[in-house]
Amino acid sequence: MPSETPQAEVGPTGCPHRSGPHSAKGSLEKGSPEDKEAKEPLWIRPDAPSRCTWQLGRPASESPHHHTAPAKSPKILPDILKKIGDTPMVRINKIGKKFGLKCELLAKCEFFNAGGSVKDRISLRMIEDAERDGTLKPGDTIIEPTSGNTGIGLALAAAVRGYRCIIVMPEKMSSEKVDVLRALGAEIVRTPTNARFDSPESHVGVAWRLKNEIPNSHILDQYRNASNPLAHYDTTADEILQQCDGKLDMLVASVGTGGTITGIARKLKEKCPGCRIIGVDPEGSILAEPEELNQTEQTTYEVEGIGYDFIPTVLDRTVVDKWFKSNDEEAFTFARMLIAQEGLLCGGSAGSTVAVAVKAAQELQEGQRCVVILPDSVRNYMTKFLSDRWMLQKGFLKEEDLTEKKPWWWHLRVQELGLSAPLTVLPTITCGHTIEILREKGFDQAPVVDEAGVILGMVTLGNMLSSLLAGKVQPSDQVGKVIYKQFKQIRLTDTLGRLSHILEMDHFALVV
């Protein structure tokens, strides 16, 4: 994948999101292997301009796509893939009243899908469409860049269908997702969380590099694949309309690839034109409109599966009536509230959605109805927002919020430890010299600072030695090549209790 991002070429006709291997024109390309080798690009942008032909009021008969309808489940399912879809609609009884809503608040519980998330729908649909058009064949390999849930859905379907599955996901995604993927037989590649989507090191860039190296491999490409919004247009939206008897006044959905909100909203605009569509985008993402909503100094966020630093091709923002931004604290607070007060075992993005819903639905009156999409299960986040310690460490809970008995030293300040200034190293000294210094002084790690004293990161003896043994660096290389740029900081005025929580999850903390 090139470091400079080429513009994806656009073909003359058809839909841009065809499933299957992508040609340089962004659509299915038939021909000899030699032709494909000559024409197939190194990668295709996940934010390529959409060429979708959908228009409100256009006859369904003019759609270029294969459409399906929700099917009634048999008493005995032939395999677990038949437990994807037909998820329950559940009334939220307490939270709406707590925040003064007059309307009825309903939750579409997508964590009841077989793999635990709304992404099971698009995973199965992308595979079925690729099999139907002859792209996927027995023994082929599926590769997908994902925040985890699409990966789980694909790995689940691949396990049943017999495909090899490789999932490329950023490091910030939970260990629970990784464990589930491994249990399903998927191979996992992790990428830096802070890598831009168009960087060769991003999950998108690495996935395309693997595709170019592995024979008979395919990126189904949830960011561009029409099967993504079509899955929701054909099934999720129809289920909502049936469950609500066609009567709903507002739908609120958090947005990642945009397939969920695009597919549902398009069908609702056709069948229930008075329904307002509300999009939820986390602070630090750029999906919301108008652009002024996205202006923030924050560039990272903890909530998973929603928000991006690019506009995915499948996201149709014209069908969203209003956007709201959400933050991590309210997302996790509301997710825990949904679990504790409503018994809905949902993930953090569901918290984002409901946090926005109780604001947006203030305009609705008694007798009206708001539906929220709860995308995934708490299963993926047992060591994250479900953990009091994690919430404390991230600053989303305060010590006084917890009532468990603490040891005698818990409320003492870090400054009472009488710490001395640490050994520091410059980023320009060599790895070999740094190892000598650390061994001589008896230290395992040291902060790396520039000549102005600005902290650049941390270097550890173990990481340097393993990097040297693996051949990633040489003793003569500058130590700046092996620094940890993500590390926890703590102030002298913070409590030892807070430091204790940090050290339970990290090997060190830097006192500043």
Rank of each mutant, 00 (worst) to 15 (best):
V206R: 03
D129S: 08
I76H: 08
L136E: 01
D133M: 10
T68Y: 06
I188P: 00
G258R: 00
L106Y: 11
S202M: 01
P200Y: 12
L42K: 11
C244P: 01
G20R: 11
S254A: 06
A48L: 04
P41T: 12
D234I: 03
N216S: 14
D129H: 08
Q55H: 15
A195C: 13
I214R: 05
A48S: 13
A231W: 03
S73F: 14
S32H: 05
A107C: 15
D221P: 03
S123G: 05
A226H: 08
E37W: 13
D179Y: 13
T262E: 00
I142F: 08
L156C: 02
S254L: 04
A48N: 11
E171K: 09
K98S: 14
W208F: 07
A8F: 09
C15S: 07
Y163G: 00
L56T: 10
P12M: 09
S19T: 05
A114G: 11
K94R: 15
L156T: 04
S19L: 05
Y223K: 01
F112V: 02
K39Q: 11
G205K: 09
L248H: 03
R266Y: 03
I240Q: 01
K108N: 02
S147D: 02
I80S: 07
A186D: 01
E34S: 06
I152R: 00
T5A: 04
N113P: 01
A195N: 08
W43R: 11
N93M: 02
R18S: 12
P46I: 07
V178N: 02
H67C: 09
S117E: 05
L106E: 08
P229V: 04
L136I: 10
T68Q: 14
T53L: 09
N149R: 04
C15N: 03
Y233S: 04
L105H: 01
M173V: 06
S50V: 07
V90Y: 03
C165I: 05
L105N: 01
Y233G: 02
S254D: 02
K97G: 14
W208Y: 08
L241S: 02
N149T: 02
S23G: 04
E9M: 05
W43K: 04
H203L: 05
E29P: 12
N194Y: 11
N228C: 00
I122H: 01
T193Y: 08
D179P: 05
F197C: 02
A114M: 04
Q243E: 10
S23T: 06
G100D: 15
V168F: 05
V189D: 04
C275Y: 02
S123W: 08
T257G: 01
S61A: 13
A24V: 15
I261G: 03
I122W: 00
L184M: 08
G115P: 08
V10S: 15
G11T: 09
G148L: 02
L154M: 06
R132E: 10
A183P: 05
F111A: 02
S123F: 06
I80V: 15
S202T: 07
R18C: 06
A226I: 09
T135P: 05
I167T: 11
N225Q: 01
P200A: 08
G116T: 13
A253L: 11
H66R: 09
P2W: 09
I76R: 02
I92C: 08
G100S: 07
G115W: 08
L28M: 13
L106C: 11
R164C: 13
T141N: 14
S217Y: 05
D234E: 09
R276Y: 10
L56V: 13
G256H: 00
H17L: 15
L184Q: 06
L210Q: 06
S27G: 13
I143L: 07
T146H: 01
S32Q: 11
K102P: 04
A226E: 09
E104D: 14
G263E: 02
M169W: 04
S174L: 02
Q55I: 11
E144I: 05
A253E: 07
P78H: 11
L136S: 05
N194H: 13
P200T: 08
H232N: 04
A155R: 01
L268T: 04
P59S: 14
A60D: 06
N113Q: 05
M89C: 06
R18Y: 14
K83Q: 11
K137P: 08
D35C: 03
I84S: 09
G246R: 15
Q222E: 05
G148M: 01
T141Q: 08
K102G: 02
H232G: 00
P12Q: 10
F197M: 06
S61H: 03
S175W: 08
E171I: 07
C165N: 01
K108D: 03
A231I: 07
L251W: 02
G100L: 07
P200C: 03
L181W: 01
D120P: 07
S19A: 15
Y223F: 08
L106I: 13
P138N: 10
E110L: 00
D133W: 14
R121Q: 02
L241F: 09
S147G: 06
N149F: 02
Q7A: 11
N225E: 04
L230R: 06
E187P: 10
K30R: 15
R224I: 07
H65Q: 05
E187L: 04
H67M: 05
L77E: 05
G100M: 06
D79R: 10
M173D: 08
V204F: 10
R266D: 02
K172H: 02
P78A: 12
P6Y: 11
G259D: 01
P273T: 05
I143Y: 05
A130Q: 01
A114C: 04
R190W: 02
D238F: 09
A114V: 08
E40I: 11
E34H: 10
G116Q: 13
D86E: 13
E176F: 01
Y233F: 12
L77V: 12
H22F: 14
W54T: 06
T235D: 07
P64M: 08
V204Y: 10
S50N: 07
L184E: 02
G96D: 13
D129Y: 07
K72T: 03
K82Y: 11
K108V: 03
P46E: 04
E37T: 06
L251H: 04
C244Q: 06
C52E: 00
E104F: 02
R190D: 01
R196S: 10
S175L: 07
V90N: 00
H203Q: 09
A114E: 06
F197W: 09
G134Y: 08
K119G: 02
P49E: 09
D129P: 04
S23F: 12
A69Y: 13
K36V: 03
C15P: 06
G148Y: 04
G11N: 10
H66F: 12
E29F: 12
E110T: 01
Y223L: 02
L77F: 15
A157F: 03
S73Y: 13
C15I: 05
L106V: 12
I167W: 08
D245Q: 08
G151Q: 00
A60W: 11
G151N: 02
I80W: 01
V118P: 08
E239D: 05
D120G: 06
L81Q: 07
S50L: 05
D47S: 07
R45D: 10
G153Y: 01
E104S: 11
K269F: 02
D245L: 03
D129K: 08
M173Q: 06
R266F: 05
C272T: 11
M173S: 10
K83L: 08
I166Q: 04
T135D: 04
L184N: 01
W54I: 06
Q55G: 12
G246V: 01
S27M: 15
E213H: 06
A183N: 04
D129W: 06
F111L: 05
L184S: 06
P41I: 11
C15M: 08
F99H: 12
G185N: 02
H17G: 13
V255A: 07
H65F: 03
Q243S: 05
T262D: 01
C52Y: 00
H232P: 00
P138K: 09
V252W: 09
E62G: 14
S61D: 05
F111C: 03
I143W: 01
D133F: 05
E4L: 10
R182L: 08
G26A: 03
P88K: 04
T260Q: 00
A69G: 07
T191P: 01
A231R: 07
P6E: 10
G96K: 09
V160D: 02
R196I: 09
G115H: 08
I214E: 04
G14N: 10
E144P: 02
L124K: 11
K102A: 13
S32L: 11
N225H: 02
I152C: 02
A207W: 01
I95T: 08
S117Q: 05
K211W: 06
S3C: 11
G116P: 13
I44H: 12
E270F: 10
K247I: 15
C15F: 12
I188M: 06
G115M: 08
I143D: 00
E110R: 03
K30H: 09
L42I: 11
K98L: 07
R45T: 07
M126A: 07
A265Y: 01
I84V: 14
I84N: 08
P170S: 07
E128K: 10
E270Q: 11
P74I: 07
S32R: 11
P145R: 00
S217F: 06
K211H: 06
I188W: 00
A159W: 03
Q7S: 11
T146I: 02
S227E: 10
L181P: 00
P229Q: 01
